[in-house]
Design a protein around this nucleic acid. Sequence first.
RNA 1: GUGACCAUAGUUCAGUUGGUUAGAACGCCAGGUUGUGGCCCUGGAGGUCGAGGGUUCGAGUCCCUCUGGUCACCCCA
Length: 418
Amino acid sequence: MKFKSIKGTKDILPDESHLWQSVEQHIRSVMETYNYKEIRTSVFEETSLFARSIGELTDIVGKEMYSFIDRSGDSLTLKPEMTAAVIRSYIQHNLGKKQPLTKVYYLSPAFRQERPQAGRLRQFHQFGAEAIGGSNPEIDAEIISLSAAIYKKFGITEFEVRINSVGCQKCREEYKFILKSFLSAIANKLSTESQRKIDTNPMRVLDSKDENDKQLTIGAPLIKDYLCDECRIHFEKLQSLLQIAGVDYVVDGRIVRGLDYYTKTAYEIISNELGSQDALTGGGRYDLLVSELGGKPTPSVGFAAGMERLIMILKKRNKLNVTAPHPKLFIAAMDDKSRNRVFQEIFKLRNQGISCETDLLNRSLKAQMREADRQQADYVIVIGENEINSNRVSMKAMRTGIQQEISLDELPNYLTGN
RNA sequence: GUGACCAUAGUUCAGUUGGUUAGAACGCCAGGUUGUGGCCCUGGAGGUCGAGGGUUCGAGUCCCUCUGGUCACCCCA
């Protein structure tokens, strides 16, 4: 085979595309219930936008971005996540001037050059939302509730919302200092991975998957015990609001998100049905990002979720009772002489918005019937000399096999009446 | 980037210690007499056995390299 899809990319084939459409439609409907409006940004941006927002030292920026130099010498990057692009757009178009709080959602492909595995692709699809312009914990609660509501909309209830506060610049620095000294004391017993992180990103040591590391860090200081008053009050208020909103959650003091820009609230939605990549959703508050990217200081919250991971669960749980679109009517031609008349009827019906199909390959009547069955057409009529002369056709309901004779002129009414 | 396992029709898979024309199921196509699908029956098409090297009289089967897939690590959606 000469050409193949790029490693880590997947074609969504005609058999499956309607399933994606249906999932997307459900997501949109929940987003709109919460009064978020869609934003679409281009798939690529200036490389420096992501470097600045996500953080130079993160894995995403350090080794996973699809970056390239275009013909004018600019460095561009296929977006590895959506928030940076949304914020860039928010600032560029002065959306904050039109209203104090901007609520947007998106559905978009994203790109990261990682080794593919279950629930991880190089081109993947995210949906998510951002509420830009407010610092109230009510907004954090709304974002978390919204993301959980989407899974509930699909009948998925087996997931866990884990929340944490990662503090602000002030209290996080103090905490990191304390944490580092705790970790340094046990450094020689930690895994080499974790040892490396003590200086660069000590909070990540706490969510190491290494069993030994887990044991060693059981008594480690957690940031929730070192929050400043403002962050602590915000976190407590968020929890009471989640209770009011009816969102079940657990506090997990070890959550650290992989993107540098989070402040205060950080949260994840985890499923135990996904394999190793178990995060359905990740999100949190990023009060410093807008100003970091050149806008006015604008506190914001958001989340991003993986489409493929959602669909994995839906498939596993058999929650995808979506029916593929199928033609209402199939018109078979008795013989070649009748084909022009068949086409005439087909186009007439299609012009009236009725989905119908006919044989385009000059096949036998039997083959045409088989095709109609395969296409799951609701009805079939056969047009031949008799029908052309009498202007009457036998309408066969394929599910029941019952035939009913009607006039050709009644066809549109008959079909739309059903 | 690291590791493990895998790669045979459109799909899911068989393929004996290396030995003639590489099989099955499903799917696809055509028939089973007069103008009607599904079930059933019969027949047919379809494979450079992932690619390239090597060992051998002989390789789908053994060895090497590459590519791709799957899963895990890392990290994340």
